[in-house]
Amino acid sequence: MKILVCIKQILDPDMPARDFKVNAETKEAERGGANLVTNIFCENALETALQIKEKTSGKVTALSYGTDDTEDSLRKALAMTVDEAALILREGDSNPDAEAVAKVLAAAITKLGEFDLILMGRESGDWGVGQTGGLLAEELGLPSLAFVDSIEANDGTLTMRRQTDSGTETATVTGPALALITNNEFNVPRIPKTRDVMMSYRKPLEKFSLADIGLSAEDVSGSSFYEVTDLSIPTKDVQCEFVEGDSIDEKIGVLASKIQPVVAANS
């Protein structure tokens, strides 16, 4: 079974809120002292792929569209025991729209060969637009399923479980197919073994330019789908009233008296 996982490197979503600044000019977040990390759902996708590989054998390829910095994310994927990695070097707009990214990924995937399963994270922790996966499925003409949290592979048949508003659904598909992965308790990304971290430097990580995959910068200029026209940090001022009291009983009494009216009004 050949699995390809698309991963995105993003600005650390755990950076302290007070460190978060936006650049009004470029309409992007300032990197400041924050780090670049692999998007968590992409790591969930990598973990899902590796678990399938471990159960059935096969090969996992990681693919990313990014800059030289993105090599770190791909190395980490290799350390998680992904077999090979490919990096398409971004040209032009530093925040390309979802359609541009989907086109690049589709061209890269066609170049890299055939895959039975393509996995992506459900959305990224930076912009969180969540459109790339669906668009890629369209570009490649594949059936897709979103919010998938576990996959089993059996002789070419894939059984996917996904989360819905009210519970879960199970779907079957004969590959190739695309799944957008969400987190659950079973696909928490593994911590790479140090041995594998060391090995990751010996594994293949190929870099391609857009021209290598048959595209030009104009083809994927990055703002023909949508364009960010404003980015700002909302200010919200609420003053929390901390419940006071001499004893804990008293405090709880005050708390209850604040809650009770809302309960009464809504039941």
């Binding site: 600005l11 979503p13 809120a17 978060f20 936006v22 309409k27 977040a29 729209d97 922790g125 930076d126 912009w127 969180g128 703002s223 023909s224 789908f225 949508y226 364009e227 960010v228 026209t229 404003d230 980015l231 700002s232 940090i233 909302p234």
Partner: peptide
């Protein structure tokens, strides 16, 4: 068409101009 939504995990608000 202009769409507003949160970005960066709720740390920012963004406005998008839709192109197609």
């Amino acid at each position: 068409v202009l769409a507003t939504r949160s970005a960066y995990g709720g740390k920012a608000m963004s406005t998008y101009s839709m192109k197609k």
